[in-house]
Design a protein around this nucleic acid. Structure first.
Lengths: 137, 137
DNA sequence: CAACTTGTAACCGCATTAGTTACATCAATC
DNA sequence: GATTGATGTAACTAATGCGGTTACAAGTTG
């Protein structure tokens, strides 16, 4: 299962996108909405910042979106908070002396590739704006 | 990331589908091809058996496919070894007094649903036979 | 009976995750 | 310029899930 950082990141970005008062947008206040520790918010915000999705300044309260919600895809968010990895794990060191063991890894890689691609395509289709539309239907 | 049990399950099923000598198909021998402990093989085989994909008998060596490889989809295998769960985790107890916190869970559920659906559709498209075709191209 | 097998329970070490404490650094305000 | 309150990070903890392993019950075959 994909960890909850993606969900928290979307929550954070939704708050940033819809909160007018910048002074209100502290990691403490966001943590109150997400219901977690402020450090968890700052940790994920740091990843969103490195991915160039939000901006912030040490010492000054608040976060700002760098792009418009319609230009932030869920894949952008996913990749911002998720270590780059394959969706499916493949076991290590299958026996090369076995016909199946010898070719199972490359075969699985091929098979899984289209599955992961399908997932990422869907994540690309949906943007932060779509999330906002659903939040305030 | 999805754990490696799916990959090991496909490996096991590939061996069963392509090994003629039933006496050879012990959990010990399969473990030698996968390169793991025989108990890991029996554990996953037990799940495949409960999912009605393979058959076996206590005390007698070997496993047999219950269906033809073309009738075993990767989703069948995925569901056999994977606890039924959502692909994306959603954080617990967001603040109901916040407009975003109040609706984020149901919104994320909707958003993630189509993504998971896309993945499962792809897993349904590919069968054990496709894997065998790629293994012995 | 002896030598095998499958099936399962139980435990271990490791990695990952979310939560937390602590603190360095910076900015705004009195 | 000292105080206050913010971001940014390092470091630690508890809980969880994973694959690997030992042990053993129960069955089959020769």
């Amino acid at each position: 299962m994909v960890n909850s950082r993606v969900s928290v990141a979307i929550h954070i970005l939704s708050l940033i996108a819809t909160t007018n008062d910048a002074n209100q947008l502290t990691s403490d206040w966001i943590a109150g909405s997400v219901n977690t520790n402020p450090v968890v918010i700052r940790r994920i915000s740091s990843q969103l910042k490195k991915a160039n999705l939000i901006a912030s300044n040490p010492g000054v309260a608040g976060y700002q979106l760098v792009k418009e919600p319609k230009d932030i895809t869920l894949l952008d968010i996913y990749r911002a908070v998720q270590a780059p990895e394959e969706l499916f794990a493949i076991h290590d060191n299958p026996n090369p002396e076995c016909a199946v063991g010898q070719r199972i890894q490359s075969t699985l890689n091929n098979v899984y590739h289209s599955v992961q691609r399908a997932m990422e395509d869907k994540l690309t289709e949906e943007t932060l704006q779509d999330v906002l539309d659903q939040l305030f239907h």
